[in-house]
Every structure is written in structure tokens, then in C-alpha cells.
Design a binder for these strands. Structure first.
Lengths: 236, 236
DNA sequence: CCTACCGATCGGTAGG
DNA sequence: CCTACCGATCGGTAGG
């Protein structure tokens, strides 16, 4: 019959194992996707047998849900700290992008695809709400500031609303960094760490200021407006 | 022993069936991903048994490769027609975005993920090259025009090079349209067709001009430059 | 283009 | 936390 100390030791061991499973599952799910990662892969990577996972999580889906829950909650904390800073919109967006890029938050599109296609409707709704509350809302609040300050175009004057801006930022994030490369040897992750901050900065630059040179900007807007019939009042 | 007419009829039937399989597989692969679509699903949707597929394609991977080959080649034709038009950079990019949005080219990220993670190295290289040649290159040539004309910022002066710009355009494309919605009834695909062109236009607007209001743009660039130490010479 | 069937692997359970 | 095992499904083959 196990008593006090043994019980405590077992409990500590269990929580540590649970945490190991969560971290391992996060890495695998985020890289390969829900369906492509088997419960046996996760267990092997943790040094466990596959049935052992079911002591800690009800099933594969709930393990995935817990992974996303932990991830988004942790990210929310970091984002809200950045958002509350006493700095400009551009500076805070830069910090947001750098933070998101530094985490294993790699392919947001893969995560959203899994949520929409591989989970039960109840879990879909739960994780969608979590995604919107923990990730989109904090980022959108920065864009909201920008719109309120008159820095960003107002949605009713040809601008993009804060929530769509936040989505756009997240989708722009990892993609043109992780894009396929014509293989030139075995150095797959070669220039990934040097240019990282520069590329993160570029995302914010493009999102805020676009690709157009400053001098030609006004004339371009007029040109496109003739085709589009929007943004007519620049001094309204 | 079957003779002339019968043989011809069988051949026509075969090509039609092959085409049906390709179209069906494309829809399923592009929506759910390579791994999530079984060969039996594809066969069922075509009104065939699963082993019948293997008369037309060597295996599942080759079917996927043929789907991508057909898709990218068709898209290349359309893109190159747009690119050759006698119109401005912004107008041609608008046409590109509208075309890509109109096709089932939905989740480019899913496609790239499947190519990188689910196929053999040989097929990876083949499809990566195809992707770059058929999709990225034509779009990049428009950005190249913009840079050459002095319309877009030069890569060495804080701008983004043409190829990265093309990637960025493709990643911005479908995402903030297909984003998860808080379910409000069963009308899932509700406002998708009315606002389509407007949203496509918005992608080009943001990509070229960013989110910042015109009046405040110059001062913002100066603000960020102080933090970043780039784009110092606006009249260079 | 079908029926019948294969080995491998999947998520999950029984029982200790 | 393990061994042993389950039914279901996967991609693919044999043979006609």
C-alpha cells in the first residue's frame, strides 16, 4: 500500500510526464498537422507506450485541444503585455511580430485547417473562440488604436477594419520565410536565424506602408481610384 | 476480340474517366489535404471502386502530382496572359488576385505543406520547381516591372524583392476571407460572393499602399527609421 | 473496370 | 505505466 511520500512522488512524476507529452505533441502537431501525427509517434518521442497517453488525456482530440489551449493562453499573456506598452502602433506591431515569430507558432494556417476539418463541432467552436480571444483580439486592439489616432485609414474610408488587419498580419507572418527552396545541399535551415528580425520588420513595413515608393504614392491612388471608385475623399 | 470502334470508344471513355478522377481529386485534396483524403473517397465520388483508380494512376502520390501539374499549368497560362497586358502594375495585380481568387486555388498554404511533408523528395523538388515557374515567376515579373519603373521601393532601399513580393501576395490571398466565424446559424458560405471582388481589391491595396493614412505616412517612416536605421535616403 | 483480398497502421480498450 | 489486443481503415495487389 503506497503512502504519503510515494503518492506525492507519483503525482509529481505524473505532472511532469503530462507536461512532456504536451510539449512533444505541440511540436509534432504544429509541424505535421493533426492527422499526420499518430499517438504512437507522440508516445515514442516521450519514451512511453501509446496506451500510456490515455491515462493523461481522454483521446487524441482532447490532447490536441489541450495543446492549443496552453499555447494560445501563453501567447495571450505575452501579447497583452506588448499591447499595453507606452509605444507607437508601429513599434508595438513590430514587437508582436517578433514575438510570434520567435515561438513555434509557425504555421497558423495549418492550425486553423486542423481546427476546421479534424475536430468535432464543439471543439471547433471552443478553439475558434479561443483563437479570436487570445490571439486576434490583442493584435486587433493595436490596429484599433491606430485607427482611433487617425494613423490608419478608417474602415469606412477604404481602410481595413482592426480584426481583419490582425488576421492579415498573422497570415503574412511565417509564410514567405518558410517557402520552398530549390535544394542546394543539405543545409535546409541555413539563413534562418540571421535575417529573422529583418524579415519580421519587413512584414510590419509592408503591412503599414506597402511596397510603393513614397513619391509615387499619391498619383497611384488616383490611378487606381479611377478604376475602383473608392477612397475618393482624401481630405474628408 | 475488340476492334476499331470499340477500342476508340473505350479510349474516349478512359480519358473522360481520367479527367473525372483528376477534377474530383483536385477538389478533395485542395479542401482537406493529401493525407485526409482516401483513395476510396475519391473513387466513391467518381462512382468507381477504389482499385479502378490504379488503372489510371500508379499510386496516390502520382495522382496528387498530376492534380498539381494540371492546376499549375492551367494557372500559368492565365497568369501570363494577364501579365502581358498593356496596363499598370496595380491593375495587373488586381487581375491576378481576382483570377487566383476565382479558381479553387484556395489554400496555397495547405498545398505547400502537403508538398513539403507528404511526398517523396523527388516529387517535392518537381512540384516546388513547378510552383515557382508557373505561379511565382509570372507574378514576380509584375513586381519586377514595378521596381524597374521606380514605382515600388528597390530591394536595396528597404523594399521587398519581386519574388518575395509574389509569395507574400499569394499568402495574403485567401486567408482573411476563409477565417473562422462564430457560427450564427447554418449559413456558412453566406456573404462570400458579394464582397469577393472588394476583398480581392483590398489585398492589392494593402500590399501596395499599406494601412497608413496618406497624410501621416512620411512622419511614420521617419519615426520607424529612428528605430530601424533603414530607408534613410528618400531622395537618393 | 470489378471482386476479393493483403499487410500495415490507425485510435482506443481490457486488465493488471 | 505496461502487455496484449480490438475493429476499422488505409494504400495497394491479384486475377480476371
Amino acid at each position: 500500500m503506497p503512502r504519503g511520500p510515494k503518492k506525492i512522488a507519483a503525482r509529481e512524476d505524473s505532472e511532469e510526464t503530462r507536461h512532456t507529452i504536451l510539449r512533444t505533441a505541440e511540436q509534432l502537431f504544429m509541424e505535421y498537422g493533426y492527422r499526420a501525427v499518430s499517438t504512437r509517434q507522440i508516445a515514442d518521442a516521450c519514451g512511453l507506450t501509446q496506451p500510456a497517453l490515455y491515462h493523461y488525456f481522454a483521446d487524441k482530440q482532447m490532447l490536441y485541444v489541450e495543446v492549443i489551449k496552453e499555447n494560445t493562453t501563453k501567447t495571450q499573456t505575452a501579447l497583452e503585455r506588448i499591447v499595453r506598452r507606452n509605444e507607437g502602433v508601429a513599434e508595438r506591431l513590430s514587437l508582436v511580430v517578433r514575438y510570434l515569430h520567435s515561438t513555434t507558432q509557425h504555421d497558423i494556417g495549418l492550425m486553423l485547417h486542423d481546427i476546421q476539418h479534424e475536430l468535432s463541432p464543439q471543439m471547433q467552436e471552443l478553439l475558434n473562440d479561443l483563437f479570436n480571444t487570445c490571439l486576434i483580439a490583442p493584435i486587433a486592439s493595436v490596429f484599433e488604436d491606430g485607427i482611433r489616432q487617425g494613423l490608419l485609414r478608417h474602415p469606412q474610408q477604404g481602410g481595413l477594419d482592426a480584426i481583419n488587419s490582425a488576421y492579415l498580419l498573422m497570415t503574412m507572418l511565417p509564410k514567405f520565410i518558410d517557402r520552398p527552396q530549390s535544394q542546394e545541399g543539405s543545409a535546409l535551415h541555413s539563413n534562418r536565424y540571421g535575417a529573422t528580425i529583418e524579415q519580421a520588420e519587413m512584414v510590419v513595413q509592408v503591412l503599414l506602408y506597402g511596397l510603393v515608393r513614397e513619391q509615387t504614392r499619391e498619383q497611384q491612388i488616383i490611378t487606381l481610384s479611377a478604376d475602383k471608385k473608392t477612397i475618393p475623399d482624401r481630405n474628408g
